[in-house]
């Protein structure tokens, strides 16, 4: 992953000096390990700050909503799918964008790594496929495959679907991954068991809305959680309110979620929020054969009507 950065910088510098774009959206090193920050580069000096490694798990498409002017954006597989979703939903025009595609081999899961060690993780170095994690009194080298974020481990669209230029050779897509293993497991439970499963899953939620803010799909000017007339969801920590929030958020992502994992990545409590969107993704796959963000010309199933749409649930 780290080898792409020279090429990324070269492209970024070129498109900026040629005046093709006004800024390039990428990542810079964060103030804590494993947390890269989004970075808007507008000059040669700020391009130098760009980094690319296995901690770029945030979704940069989030920063495109309703932007004016021309923008260069560094996009891995999931970012590019969300850019496509943005274009389809008229949130940005394709010709405003210069997409620098980056084939991705997955991002590492900082929740998992922090949980593996007792002390604070102070430094994470990456070289090729191995990751060295060190802190006060410990240092360990592990293979990246073991540390992948859950969504990256089952990702089947590692290469960008839409790009103007690539920063490296396309990587081989993962085959034979069961994307929906966790969903199938929950589907087998009874109604009560399911209810308890999700009750436990959500019990640590503190309603910080980090998942909503990190999500590239969540761009409503006024989010339903902030509406008070009528108030759709209470602002308390009551389990019903928490659940209503997560369910409604998931419905808003139906047929649009690309499983980029940004929500889980930013959750301070490490809740597996993808359990909800995953189920809807599976339904979209089963009912309409649809995966979000793969083509600029196709309309998503929930905004078109076809006479052969499934309707068994209607009496």
């Amino acid at each position: 992953m780290t080898q792409y950065i020279d090429k990324i910088k070269e492209i970024a510098n070129r498109v900026l000096t040629e005046g093709k774009v006004e800024m390039v959206i990428g990542f810079r090193k964060g103030s804590v390990p494993m947390m890269n920050q989004p970075h808007l580069a507008t000059s040669a000096e700020s391009v130098d700050e760009l980094v690319w490694d296995s901690n770029c798990g945030l979704n940069l498409a989030n920063y495109l909503t309703d932007k004016k002017g021309t923008i260069g954006i560094i996009a891995k597989g999931c970012d590019s799918r969300n850019i496509v979703t943005h274009v389809i939903e008229n949130k940005i025009k394709r010709d405003q964008l210069y997409i620098i595609g980056v084939p991705c081999t997955g991002m590492i899961d900082h929740h998992k790594i922090n949980a593996m060690f007792d002390g604070e993780v102070l430094n994470v170095e990456e070289s090729g496929d191995s990751i060295t994690i060190s802190g006060n009194g410990f240092s360990e080298t592990l293979s990246k495959q073991e540390l992948l974020a859950e969504n990256c481990a089952v990702c089947s669209h590692r290469n960008p679907v839409e790009y103007d230029e690539l920063a490296g050779d396309l990587v081989e897509e993962q085959k034979d991954v069961d994307q929906y293993a966790s969903v199938t497991k929950v589907e087998a439970l009874s109604a009560d068991e399911k209810f308890n499963y999700f009750e436990d899953l959500l019990s640590p939620c503190i309603r910080c809305y980090a998942c909503r803010n990190a999500c590239p799909l969540c761009y409503c000017p006024t989010c339903f959680v902030d509406e008070s007339r009528p108030q759709w969801v209470g602002k308390s920590q009551d389990p019903t309110d928490v659940k209503t929030f997560h369910l409604l958020r998931a419905y808003h992502c139906a047929g649009r979620c690309t499983d980029c994992g940004a929500c889980e990545r930013v959750c301070p409590m490490g809740i597996k929020i993808r359990e909800f969107t995953k189920k809807l993704n599976k339904d979209c796959q089963d009912l309409y054969g649809w995966e979000a963000g793969l083509s600029l010309d196709e309309r998503p199933p929930l905004d078109t009507f076809k006479t052969d749409d499934p309707d068994e649930f209607i009496k």
Binding site: E187, E193, K194, Y251, L280, F313, I314, K315
Partner: peptide
């Protein structure tokens, strides 16, 4: 709609759709 609610533990008989 129905699928996710049932997925999270709503009993199947509590949500109905029809066309009349």
């Amino acid at each position: 709609m129905k699928n996710l609610l049932e997925h999270t533990g709503l009993e199947p008989g509590r949500l109905h759709f029809s066309w009349i």
